[in-house]
Every structure is written in structure tokens, then in C-alpha cells.
Design a protein around this nucleic acid. Structure first.
Lengths: 341, 341
DNA sequence: CTGAAAGCGCTAACAA
DNA sequence: TTGTTAGCGCTTTCAG
């Protein structure tokens, strides 16, 4: 029942309309030299009258290198503010290169990762910027071997050696925990994201190492892992604070977890008693009371750097794969400086 | 200097490898009938060994209807949390239809609107979901005539008659102002977004009409328009509250403006004196003190509905263009219920 | 059930 | 300066 569609003029129809060979039209469209001004004008007129719109994909079919001037991007979720910042960074660079971006959300679903990368590859994208969600990215080796550059963002991929742009998750966590310890805390809880996420594991590692190094209280109950969302973080916080031996400080290791923790502490009236440092900034974190001390990182920059790396590869850079670490920053705002009871 | 790329097997190479005609391979790849099981197995083996990845764009070149299974989406800014929600809604529907989405940010730049829609059209997207930013969308008429469906989101387009999914901006503003009036306010300020934005003009209209209807104070100083960002909103609020005759309530007509207003009131210590209703929800708006009363709308739903409309058109729906109004909701949280002094 | 021929809209290579 | 021929990787059509 589809409408009569796609009745767009082809280059040959334009040529017929202008009374020239179609190659001449192609020359005008692509700004190639060797067209007499008079001819060019005639062609341009036909172009305008018919409203010619070149078909990029048809062009890239034969074009040397077969570039499609598209890239594919997968992020954890386009509607997650942090992930959206990565998207913004990538997009700015892609736009500057006159390249269109396919964007897709994964929502931590490995199947989605496979499906979307396959779809991008079928569309012959010139490169991929990916957030690793599946347990292994080995399946992408063939694509890399065939010359599709891939840059991973935010998380380290597994079983594949390519460029990646990440932050020092363990190191930054160390700084967060040490900051709390400096304010007298010995019982510090760590609320972590899904263990399937590489950055979550790194943050946990940073926590455990620092607890050992600084000889803080070691207590299984203080380590809460695998929190899938804000609600679970909320419940976990309540349980934690109602336990016989509650922590005096909390390290919440992801933005949504932090929001759950903040809500829970607020509801229990503990916002000003229990110290809190968040890994990831949260929106309006500086306007809450107390304002939330966070480990912040520039996600837009991660996206930008990744895209720049990708375009370098697309343009022939064959240097060894690089791991680029974008700096993090501890933003001291109040919640992290509450002293131990 | 480009690497040796694009050495992917073609359908003919797979056919040679399997010792069959290439049409037989195409049958297997596309799940067409009339292939002997033994032949199919042989072909499948070759497919796997060579790692065949079909070229979607080459396929759509000849395919009936010429569908590319891609759509184009432009939003005000991918990194804006509200716009990202629209993206999320569109994406979910597109994914269900097995269609890839090109996404681009406009940042209120009319040039960007023209450039991106042109780029999408050159890539022969099956449809467009657009946020109107330019003064007129007349330039898209030819694309529509040629059968590329377009659905506008969030803002009404100009000079073109197509499907659109919007909210009742003037009506919702009316509700906001009336809400403030019900709490005794007569001097209500309106801080508005850029006047080039259609929704900003509608919200202003709703404000002015309600002021007249309810016979509230009319004062040019209470109407602050064309605020481009949070910082300008911050400054405008300070100026407003320092004026000889300051308002007792503020209607901030966009999410970023609200954040500027909240910061300013906070810094002036007026958060609990001056009532505030925001058009657009803001992140953690319920955790601020006081929590912010807002006009909220489901942007994810806007994206979803728009995408569903688009796919209906792509699949042949030729009913008259529809204007779909998604409901808004007044979320009463505290800031809007502060009584007049 | 299988395959060969034609052609989608364009670019590349070469001829006039 | 211009036009012609080939062919990109696939789908369509039609012949075996």
C-alpha cells in the first residue's frame, strides 16, 4: 500500500533535461574542473528546476575506498544524561568531518550490542565508537581486520586490542575513599553498579585496595554490589543504615546509585550525618543540601577524543592501538567533608 | 595513506567458494524459499567461513521502494537531557522496526537544520523526525512531495503541513499561572526562552492571556524574554528581584532557565519567599529545597508517538496530516505553593 | 530448485 | 571540454 515514492530525478534525467551528457552533470555536482561556464550554468539550472538530490550511498558503492561518510555509535543509553554527553562530543567532531552518525542505545544488553554493531557493519560505516557491554568483543576482530576502525569509550573492551578512551576508575575511587578517610571515616561503604560492567569492577577494586592500604574497617556488609538502578540503591542504603553497625560514610559508585543514596539519606534524615562521595557527577549536585562531593569526568571530552582518534584511523593512521585516559576531578562540595561521628 | 580496507567478501565470492550460483547465495542470505537443504547447508558454511556481511545500501539501490531502513532525527541538542529523552523514545520504536537512526543536534542553528536534513535526504532515509529551528520549513515540501514522510516533534513547523507531535504550551502555561494566582500571587514574572523558538512564543502567549483573564498585575518589567541560557536567566532573576517592585512569583518557561532561576533565588536567600513554577521538569527537581513545582511532559512518549506516526506513513498511511497533542501535568512539589507575601 | 542477464545511481577510467 | 564504457554489490526478472 506504499505511496508512489522515490521519484527523484537521477543524474541522467538531469543531463537529458539540460541537454548534456550525464558525466558533465556529475562534474558540476561534484565541483570537478573542466566544465565550460556556459555549460555549468545550463546544468545548474536543470539541477535547480528538477531539485536534484545526489544519492550518497549509490556514490560510495563505486568510490575509491568505498567510504560512506557515516559512523556508528553505541552508548549505554541515549536518554542517560551522562551517555548523552558522550554522544554530544562525538557528534561535534563527526559534524566537522561532514559525517553522519548512527546512534543506538544498548541498555546493558549484550544482544543489543551484537545486533547494533552488525547493523552498522551491514551499512558499511567508516568506523565505530562503542561502549562495551557484552562479555567479550572478540566478534569484532574480523571487522577490525577488514579495516573498520573501532574506538571504545568509557569501558575497556575484552579480547580485542583497539583504541579506547577511558578514565582511571580504580585510581579515582582511591582518591574518593582517601578523601573520606582524611575526614576521619573508618567505616566506609561502597555501593557499586552491576558487576558485569567493567568500570564497576574497577571501582570496586579501587575501593578494596584503598581500604586495605589505609587499614580501614573491613566488613562484607559495607560492600554492596550489583545495584541495577536507583531504586535498588535506595533500598540498599536504607538496609545499610539500619544494620547493627552502619557506615559513617558512603561511596556511591555511579550516578544513578548516588541519586538513590541521596534520596534514602534524605528520607532517613541522615543527609548531614553520613558523608557521601559520588563517582560521577549528578545534575544539580551542587544545589542539593548538602551539595554532593563527586568524582567528575568530562564525558563530552571523552566523546570528542574518541571521535578524533576514530577519524585519524579512518584517514590511515596505523600506529599501535592507544589507550587514552581522560582525567577525573574531585569536586569538593560538602557531602564528602562531613566528619566521622 | 588509507589502509587496505573494504576487503569484504561479496555475494559472488561466497558463491564461488560454495560452488553455486550467486543467486542461490542471495536466497540463503535473505531466507527466500526454493533452496535444497543440502545446498543451503553448503552455502551457510561458505557464509560462515568467509564471514559474509551483506551490504545494505547496495541492496536498497535496486530494491522495490528503495527503502534504506534508516531514518533521520534532529533534536535541539543530543546532550540536553530533555531532548535526549525524545531520542530515546524514537530509538525504541525504530529499533523495533529494525531501522537505524541518524541523530543530529541543531543547537538552535537554522543552518544546521538545513545541512542535516539535506545530508539525511542524500542518504535516502525512509523518513525524518525533526525539531523545527529555522523560520520556515518550506524547503522540505519537495521532499514530502517525493514521498519522504516527515514528523515534527516538540515544535510546530512553519509553511508546511505534516504530522507533528507537540504539547499544549499556551494551555499548560495558563495552568501554571493560574496555580500561582490561586496562591494569592498578583505580580507574577515570566522568564522566557529565545523568541525564535515557537514553543517559547506559545508559552509567552499563555502567560499574557492568563494575566489578562485573571486581571493580574500587568508590568513590562515582569516579562523577560529571549533568555538564551542558564546564566542569562540567573542574571535576569537577580535584576528582577532587585528591582523597585519585584514579583512575588516566577514562571520560568524552560528547564535551563529554571535552573538559573533556582540558583539565583538560592544565592539571594529567596528560595522560600518567592514562588516558582517551571515549564519543563528538571533533574532532581523533587530533591531541591523547596522542591520545584513543574509542568512536566513525557518527552520519551513524544518521541515514541512521533516514530510510530512516521512508520505508519512509511508503510503507506496517506490520511491527512495529524497534530498529536501529548498531555502535560502539573507536579505540585512545594515551590509553586509558597503564598504571596 | 537453480542460475544468467539486466539494471539501481553513481564514480572511475578512458576515449573523443 | 565533453561523452562513453565499465562496474560497485546487490535485487529483480526471467530462463533453464
Amino acid at each position: 500500500m506504499a505511496a508512489e515514492r522515490q521519484n527523484r530525478p537521477t543524474i541522467r534525467q538531469v543531463a537529458a533535461h539540460a541537454g548534456v551528457g550525464f558525466k558533465t552533470v556529475a562534474r558540476v555536482v561534484n565541483g570537478e574542473p573542466n566544465v565550460a561556464p556556459a555549460t555549468a550554468a545550463k546544468v545548474q539550472k536543470a539541477l535547480d528546476e528538477l531539485g536534484y538530490v545526489p544519492d550518497e550511498s549509490a556514490g560510495s558503492l563505486r568510490r575509491a575506498g568505498g567510504r560512506t561518510r557515516t559512523i556508528g555509535l553505541t552508548i549505554s543509553n541515549v536518554a542517560n544524561p551522562l551517555a548523552a554527553q558522550i554522544h554530544g562530543g562525538v557528534e561535534a567532531v563527526a559534524m566537522a568531518h561532514n559525517v553522519a552518525t548512527f546512534a543506538a542505545s544498548l541498555n546493558e544488553d549484550p544482544e543489543a550490542e551484537l545486533a547494533h554493531t552488525a547493523a552498522f557493519l551491514r551499512r558499511r560505516v567508516d568506523g565505530l565508537i562503542l561502549t562495551a557491554v557484552a562479555a567479550s568483543q572478540k566478534y569484532l576482530q574480523r571487522a577490525v581486520d577488514r579495516g573498520t576502525p573501532i574506538v571504545f569509550v568509557d569501558r575497556e573492551p575484552v579480547d580485542i586490542h583497539t583504541d579506547r578512551v577511558v578514565v582511571d576508575n580504580a585510581g579515582a575511587t582511591k582518591i574518593a575513599i582517601a578523601h573520606l578517610a582524611r575526614h576521619g571515616h573508618r567505616r566506609i561503604a561502597h555501593l557499586g553498579d552491576l558487576e558485569s560492567i567493567q568500570t564497576a569492577r574497577e571501582r570496586r577494586r579501587g575501593y578494596l585496595e584503598t581500604v586495605r592500604e589505609l587499614e580501614l574497617h573491613v566488613d562484607e556488609d559495607l560492600l554492596v554490589l550489583d545495584l541495577p538502578d536507583e531504586l535498588h540503591a535506595y533500598d540498599a542504603t536504607r538496609r545499610l543504615m539500619h544494620s547493627p553497625n552502619p557506615p559513617t560514610a558512603i561511596h556511591s559508585a555511579q550516578n544513578l546509585i548516588t541519586i538513590g543514596v541521596v534520596r534514602a539519606l534524605r528520607d532517613m534524615g541522615l543527609s548531614r550525618q553520613v558523608a557521601l562521595v559520588s563517582f560521577d557527577d549528578i545534575p544539580l549536585g551542587d544545589l542539593l543540601e548538602p551539595a554532593v562531593t563527586v568524582i567528575s569526568h568530562d564525558l563530552r571530552r571523552i566523546g570528542q577524543v574518541a571521535a578524533e582518534r576514530l577519524f585519524a584511523r579512518i584517514n590511515g593512521d596505523v600506529s599501535p592501538p592507544r589507550k587514552i585516559v581522560v582525567p577525573t576531578q574531585l569536586l569538593v562540595r560538602g557531602s564528602g567533608e562531613i566528619p566521622a561521628a
